[in-house]
Amino acid sequence: MIEIRHLTKIYDDKIVLQNINLDINNGDFVVIMGPSGSGKSTFLSIISGLSRPTEGSVCYDDINISKLPESDVGKFRNSKIGFVFQKFNLMENLTVYENILPPVIIAEKKITKKDIFELLKRFEIDNLSDVKVKRLSGGEQQRVALARALVNDPELLIADEPTANLDYRLKNEVIDTFKKIHYQGKTIIVATHDRVFTEIEGARIINMINGKIAEMV
């Protein structure tokens, strides 16, 4: 369970997030909606430990990651959280397989090459393992980013605008993938403009405006 309490983030005197309180249960599918600049991405970056809050706390069960030393946050993120970025943030000159490696290299648990290929197969990109990602289509790149996020089998998958750069067909593919991952018992938090996510059965919808939670469904 994730307990978010009094979360505030101020950048250069500008309040980006203001006193956010939220509980997310294991297995939840949380969809965060809201206009650009509403603080969705900042919120995701803080709950994933990529940024620190100005005030407040983010607790995973009893662990407050906002107070953990940087090295422990890294280890925590590596084992518990997978993150998919809007622009995928893949290393373009590396191959698909090499792009999956960063979380594996520093993982506490052993992940074999076979495990990685099984994952690539799940996302139907095993035949592209030796191809540089810059040669892939947007949809293929998105699947590589997803595979990288899931390779350490994290409990939580966070995605920032995962369908923003995709056409209609690919968008549906990605949504199906998220549904499958959720069906396997993972907790998913997605920040998006895409209303299609709100139609996912059982999804909790959170609307953010001006750094505050305006509505929770």
Partner: peptide, 19 residues
């Protein structure tokens, strides 16, 4: 920019500053 992105990706996937 490429090197910055690489560092960002590594950090995002759990690498510490020391790593």
């Amino acid at each position: 920019e490429t090197e910055k992105l690489e560092i960002g990706v590594l950090k995002a996937t759990g690498w510490t500053t020391s790593d």
